[in-house]
Design a protein around this nucleic acid. Structure first.
Length: 706
DNA sequence: GGGTCGGTAAACAAAC
DNA sequence: AGTTTGTTTACCGACC
């Protein structure tokens, strides 16, 4: 890594897109320096820098995250959901955080993971701030209240006993609130930090809600919930005892939800519309709602204990949906109640029908609604996935048909078209936080998934992921899913230059590109390649020349580069030619023998992120699955097949299209596609891992054709 | 420890 | 003349 960073600072080129390459600059000491001219190293902060920064933060979070995992940290008082702490490959978890460099992190974690971490961290920071404020406010209030009390006591000493008592009790309540607040905070922070691993928690739910709603919605919602002091509350406030409202934002009742993003816009109590007016109407509204959609109790979300759902708030003999583990499960409450009786009392006292309660109820309904929507979506997706997969076994060796070509493939293809050739592509949304929202959940990036063992050793910035490149990374799918990410985040893509180049070429309409077009493709697709142009361009050229699989073809207009698939395949020597059984074993092994654990972890993770990820985000789903089976290297299947307008016959063997030079024809490849099978095979019979996984990839195809 | 592979640096030449 | 493109060599680190 030293080498890399050093070299980066030293050379790099200013040149940018338009191929103004910089090779020349290398020789002349003067011209160099472009690093600066690139904008990233210069005084002002470029979008890229911002991204960098954010990535750093995310990485920090990731470290923390891993540390927690390693230490088996699990939320203490937590919920039923006993998530296994291992959601990340063990190897990663074992690493001591200090040993993980940002670059390692980048490579260890898939882009989606990074995104998630980033988001988490941001949310965490915001929350912490929020809590801090809350606490400060509470303390302040406590103090002032004490003063008031003292004054009152002095003034009207014996006088108003009653009033005093009232005050006292309120103060008590207040203190209790403070304590609760702290508890909440701690717990919530824990939750947040652990969210990547433990989904389906109140926090997660709230967060997803937040994310599902636009900030303004949330603001309004929270204003309604908290910002608007009711007439009674106003009174309390006069006494300095207000518990439910806080100066600026949100309420103490729902610190969790309020925190994360809202603070950004810190709702300055601008318009407190919807005053508590007629709570009667509110109540009506609510009850109509509950009738409408609550045949089922959603409450369980908040009841850590497994209380059998009892009909609406009816206090049942021994159980109540809002009561569990000696705590009140009213959102944000968690007051301790020794027994049911006490709880009922508490319920009636603290959560009576008032504005706050109704508002909270509304929020809860929103939460439920969101979750239901989400659930419906996910269910549907699951259904589709399952049906899709179940069909798989029937075609055990259909080479190439990576299951989901349709989805990822098409995506990918179009994507390329979207950009005019040679366009300088301004760092699109680089200025924004990595644009986590869109890409979302692709979660289990193949790389992360497959990178099990030695993956973390790619400490070095360089792509250098042999394994992934070889048999783990389906560039096509990975790119398809994370194309936005790579486009905007200054993260090095986990692919080798060769595979990237190949991808670029195959992705092109004619399956041939000029050098400059290749450059453009790189810069277009990867923010990372918008810097240090001299370096990577040199690498590209180097690769083009070095690898036989890249064939230079003289064209009318000059020279273009094409891919000789056969050669490309040769690069990795096929070890086992195919005994079907062997192959089969390999496949299964490939799919799951080695991946089993990580695969499952990834799966869990994916579902997790699903839950956590904002709906806005493209639903994770299919995509992630896609990667799983398309898990072969590079571009391959997706690109080829889809790209060729469906014209490509899946059954073609590499040999068949071996004309190096005029490529453009029907390409190809069948290669790796056997992977899909692997998924199934792996699932059904998880065999011991094969010795060398990559072989499969390449060999299969050939043999399959027979 | 040696081989392979991928990334990087750099020298050089030919073409533009 | 300067730049781009292409080739080649060398070195390093990671992985096997």
């Amino acid at each position: 890594m030293m080498v890399e960073s050093a070299s980066e600072t030293i050379r790099t080129t200013p040149s940018n897109q338009n191929g103004v390459s910089s090779l020349s600059s290398q020789s002349d000491g003067g011209g160099g320096r472009e690093g600066g001219s690139n904008g990233d190293t210069n005084g002002e902060i470029s979008p890229v820098d911002l991204l960098h920064l954010q990535q750093q933060q995310a990485l920090q979070a990731a470290r923390q995250f891993l540390l927690q995992q390693a230490s088996g940290l699990n939320s203490p008082g937590s919920n039923e959901v006993k998530q296994s702490p291992v959601q990340v490959p063990v190897s990663m978890a074992m690493m001591s955080p200090q040993m993980i460099t940002p670059q390692q992190m980048q490579q260890i974690l898939s882009p989606p993971q990074l995104q998630a971490l980033l988001q988490q961290q941001q949310a965490l920071m915001l929350q912490q701030e929020y809590y801090k404020k809350q606490q400060e406010q509470l303390h302040l209030q406590l103090l002032t209240q004490q003063q008031q009390q003292q004054q009152q006591q002095q003034q009207q000493q014996a006088g108003k006993q009653a009033a005093k008592e009232q005050l006292g009790s309120k103060q008590l309540a207040f203190q209790q609130q403070l304590i609760q607040m702290q508890q909440l905070q701690q717990q919530h922070i824990l939750n947040l930090q652990r969210q990547g691993l433990v989904p389906l928690q109140p926090t997660a739910a709230m967060q997803s809600l937040q994310q599902a709603m636009c900030p303004s919605d949330l603001q309004q919602l929270w204003k309604e919930v908290s910002g608007v002091p009711s007439s009674e509350e106003a009174l309390k406030q006069a006494e300095g005892l207000d518990l439910s409202t806080n100066s600026s934002n949100s309420t103490s009742a729902f610190p969790k939800a309020a925190s994360a993003h809202i603070p950004l816009h810190s709702l300055p109590n601008g318009q407190s519309h919807t005053p508590k007016r007629d709570r009667a109407r509110l109540f009506e509204w609510i009850s109509s709602f509950t009738k409408a959609d609550s045949g089922d109790d959603h409450v369980p979300l908040y009841s850590k204990g497994s209380q059998p759902p009892s009909s609406h708030h009816e206090e049942h003999a021994g159980s109540h949906p809002l009561y569990g583990h000696g705590e009140c499960k009213w959102p944000g409450c968690e007051a301790l109640c020794e027994d049911m009786g006490q709880f009922i009392k508490h319920l009636n006292n603290e959560h009576a029908l008032d504005d706050r309660s109704t508002a909270q109820c509304r929020v809860q309904m929103q939460v439920v609604q969101q979750l239901e929507i989400q659930l419906a979506k996910e269910s549907e997706r699951l259904q589709a996935m399952m049906t899709h997969l179940h069909m798989r076994p029937s075609e055990p060796k259909p080479f190439n048909q990576p299951l989901n070509l349709a989805s990822s493939g098409s995506l990918l293809k179009r994507d390329s078209d979207a950009y005019p050739e040679g366009l300088p592509h301004p760092p699109t949304s680089a200025a924004t936080p990595i644009t986590p929202l869109r890409q979302g959940p692709s979660v289990i990036s193949s790389s992360s998934l497959h990178t099990h063992s030695h993956s973390h050793s790619h400490a070095v910035g360089p792509i250098r992921r042999r394994n992934s490149d070889k048999y783990c990374t389906p560039i096509a799918s990975e790119l398809a899913q994370n194309c936005e990410f790579y486009k905007n985040a200054d993260v090095r893509p986990p692919f080798t230059y060769a595979s990237l180049i190949r991808h670029a070429i195959l992705e092109s309409p004619d399956r041939q590109l000029t050098l400059n077009e290749i450059y453009n493709w790189f810069t277009r697709k990867f923010a990372y390649f918008r810097r240090n142009t001299a370096t990577w361009k040199n690498a590209v050229r180097h690769n083009l020349s070095l690898h036989k699989c890249f064939v230079r073809v003289e064209n009318v207009k000059g020279a273009v580069w094409t891919v000789d698939e056969v050669e490309y395949q040769k690069r990795r020597p096929p070890k086992m030619t195919g005994s079907p059984t062997l192959v089969k074993n390999m496949i299964s092994g490939l799919g799951f023998g080695s991946l089993n654990a990580s695969y499952q972890a990834a799966l869990a993770e994916s579902s997790l992120s699903l839950l956590n990820s904002p709906p806005l985000v493209t639903p994770p789903s299919a995509a992630s699955l896609n990667m799983l089976h398309v898990g072969h290297d590079d571009v391959s299947s997706t690109v080829e097949q889809v790209n060729s307008n469906g014209s490509c016959s899946p059954t073609l063997s590499p040999q068949q299209y071996s004309h190096p030079v005029h490529v453009k024809e029907e390409p190809t490849e069948v290669e790796e596609d056997s992977r899909p099978v692997s998924l199934l095979a792996g699932v059904t019979h998880s065999l011991p891992l094969p010795s060398d996984e990559r072989d499969l990839e390449e060999d299969l195809p050939t043999e399959e054709l027979e």
